Computed example of a mutant assay.
Amino acid sequence: MEQLLRPIYQERASRPNTLGVIIVGKKEDVSPKTDTFDTILLIITKENKVPVFTKHYTFDGKKAAMHIITEKQLHKWLLVGTNKKLIDWILFGKILFDRNEYLTNLKQTVKDFPFYGRNIKMGIEFAKLVRQYLEGKVCFEKNNHLDAYDHMIESLHHFARLAILDKGLYPEITVWSQVKLIDAEIYKLYKELIGSDESIEKRLELLFLASEFLIHSRTADGARHILNVMAQQDFWTIQELHEHEELKNYSVDLEVFIEFLISKGFIQVETVETKGNGLYHRHYKIDPTTI
């Protein structure tokens, strides 16, 4: 398949906008890491009209996918961790074209896993964890145990990814295989939730108790990124927080995360008078002792 794709990637490599080309072959009969395609052709460009451009090809019963992505989109996926296949492609794909060792340096960066990247990933995972935990607790208190179970399964997945990130590793698709080796406590909670002979109510009850302790012990690490961002100025409106380039990645979890951190004393609320009688704006600042 590489021979057949050669004219395509050579034509792209000749363009000054192209930074690198990687080819990835399927390793299993059914391979989620290549979206079941036999071959993936990943082309990274400095910029493009669209951040992601994809084409599919077929030849003699085999199929290939070409993905052209901008450098900005690549960094966003690496930073936020929403495209886990990309890590595998970068680390294990074959480099076909490498302008000024762009891909060589990128591979090394991914292997080294810079601390900044870990901070923001941990912040986003922790914010998602808080939402799932709080929603699960509400469902449990209303005796909606199956809904609570779903939320707590999700919260454990976020716990698992946090444990992996804390070790300076990237969470893989097979996240529980990783966690089994590096965090026996979280792996045990997961096994007990899905496999215990206790009633679902009892299992959830025990998990909420354990989760409360785990969340408390991990809050400082999980909040580090957002607090470092907020330390850049004295006060923030909620709109300013939403529009900050890095905090945009928290998406719909940002506000519930801020309220959680207020309840834990990491963020303080300052009220500012409005023109309405007795009505105040809420502004937010960090407690400097938490940094």
Rank of each mutant, 00 (worst) to 15 (best):
I173D: 05
M1Y: 05
V252G: 06
D112I: 03
H157Y: 13
R203F: 05
T271N: 14
M152C: 05
R161H: 14
A231T: 05
F53I: 10
G276K: 12
K63G: 14
L227M: 04
G136H: 02
I23H: 10
E246G: 02
V30F: 13
P114E: 06
K180L: 14
E101W: 06
G136I: 03
A65Y: 01
A184V: 09
I8S: 04
K72H: 15
I262A: 02
V269G: 07
I262D: 02
D38C: 06
L165P: 00
A163P: 02
V130R: 03
D221H: 08
N105F: 08
K142V: 06
Q268D: 06
E205Q: 07
V130A: 04
N249R: 05
D38G: 10
S196D: 13
H242N: 03
Q268G: 07
F140S: 10
Y250N: 00
H216S: 13
D287M: 07
I69G: 07
L254Q: 03
Q233H: 02
L78S: 09
A160E: 09
F257C: 03
R131A: 10
A210R: 15
T109S: 12
L209S: 08
V256S: 11
N228W: 06
E243M: 09
F213I: 13
L181G: 00
I22H: 10
R12L: 12
I226S: 02
D150P: 11
I186V: 15
T58S: 13
T45C: 08
K188P: 01
N48C: 12
L106R: 05
K285P: 04
E198R: 08
F140M: 13
L162I: 15
T289C: 07
A220P: 02
S263G: 09
E11K: 15
I40M: 12
E192D: 10
G61D: 10
L204Q: 06
S263V: 01
Y116P: 03
E101N: 09
Q233W: 11
L261R: 00
W176D: 01
T82G: 14
Y102R: 05
L241A: 02
Q132F: 04
G25H: 11
L129G: 01
K264D: 03
I40G: 08
E245W: 01
E246A: 15
D197H: 12
R118W: 01
I291T: 07
